[in-house]
Each structure stands twice: as C-alpha cells, then as structure tokens.
C-alpha cells in the first residue's frame, strides 16, 4: 500500500519537473506519423509492427531517463522494484505520469504473477482521432480495424523493460478508439534475462 502511494507521488513529482510540450502538437505529430505509416505500408499489421519498433527505440532510452531522474530525486527505484508487481506500479504510476502526465492504473494480475494489465483512462496520443467506420471504403475502414493506433506504447514498455532485464510481450487488448470504455495494455513477462557479465569475464 505504501509503495503504491510512493509510486504515484514520485510520478507526480517527476512530472512537475519535466519540460512540457503542447498536447495538441504532440497528438497531431503522432497522428501524422501513424497516417504516414499507413500510407507507406498499407497493411495495418505491418504498421503495428513499425509502431512497436519505433516505440522500442524510444523505450530503450526512456528507461535511463526515468531511472536517472528518479535517482536524482532520491527515490531509489532500483531498490523498490523487487518483483513484477512493483515494476508494474512504477511503469504505470511513474513512467506514464512522468512522460505523458496521465494516470495509469495497474490490475488484472494473472495467477502466476507473470502478466498484468495497464489501464489508461485517457490516451494523449489519440486526442482527436476517430478511426474510419468499418464499411468505409474510401478510407479503407475495414482494414484499419486491425490497426492498433497506440501500439507505440507496447514498444515503449517492451523496450524499457528489456533494458532492465525483463523480457516482456505487450499487446493492446482494449482500445477506446474501437469502442471499448478503457485502454488496456496487457503485459506478459516472458523471462528474466540473466544479469551480470558473461562467463568469459568471470574470475576463477
């Protein structure tokens, strides 16, 4: 309980220190990126993959920023994340808050504690977005049903956790753009990567 409070407080504190960008500019920039990808690749599945890749390279960098800033602020996150539950808290309460200014919730842990969901009430990436209707031929509405507009998040989470030795798989399972009442990102832990130096460097 106390760690929960701590995480959201830390997120709040870090968010207040972050330089801010105009939300509309941000949303429109991402929007043009996605539509550009849609035009280039045509296949929405491929677009999802590209967004995931872009997100991955963002996440790889983000995690360092998060950890360093948290350290400077004296929050010692490294000691806080003992298990996946803590990690999930930090991703949602600190990560999303710090970079996007939105509050994310964690829930839906599986029995074996190896997968969880992140719930986003509002999605700053999709501020103005409305997907074309299903039967809409002009904009390829049928095809775009398969597009995961905010798949960037999946990449970011995957990239960030990969840097701290957690190999995860992310998936957007619910999307407000498709009529669901909340955005849900399912995160599944695949394996904890071996830490430390390779065998070659070990001393006798």
């Amino acid at each position: 309980m106390s760690s929960k409070m701590q995480a959201s407080q830390a997120g709040q504190a870090l968010w207040s220190k972050m330089p801010k960008a105009n939300a509309e500019l941000f949303a429109l920039t991402y929007g043009s990126l996605v539509t550009e990808l849609v035009r280039d690749y045509e296949d929405p599945i491929e677009v999802n993959a590209q967004l995931d890749r872009i997100g991955h390279s963002i996440g790889v960098r983000c995690v360092d920023e998060l950890l360093s800033k948290a350290d400077v602020a004296g929050m010692g996150l490294a000691t806080q994340c003992q298990n996946l539950r803590d990690t999930a808290e930090v991703v949602a309460k600190v990560g999303f808050k710090m970079f996007l200014g939105v509050q994310a919730e964690v829930g839906g842990f599986s029995q074996d504690q190896r997968s969880f969901s992140i719930y986003l009430q509002d999605n700053p990436l999709a501020t103005f977005v409305e997907l074309p209707a299903a039967g809409d031929e002009q904009y390829n509405g049928d095809d775009l049903r398969k597009l995961k507009y905010s798949n960037l998040y999946c990449g970011v989470i995957r990239g960030a956790l990969e840097q701290v030795n957690l190999k995860v798989e992310c998936n957007i399972v619910r999307d407000t753009l498709k009529g669901d009442e909340v955005n849900e990102i399912r995160v599944e832990l695949k394996e904890v990567l071996a830490d430390g130096a390779g065998d070659d460097y070990k001393e006798e």
Binding site: E24, L28, G31, S32, V34, L131, P132, A133, D136, Q138
Partner: peptide, 13 residues
C-alpha cells in the same frame, strides 16, 4: 485534427 480525415474530402464521421 483527426489524422484520418483528409482536408476537402467528404465527411463520413
């Protein structure tokens, strides 16, 4: 502002 709407095209929304 919707990225899927192109300027000067019929509005289906």
């Amino acid at each position: 502002m919707n990225p899927f709407y192109k300027y000067d095209t019929p509005i289906m929304s």
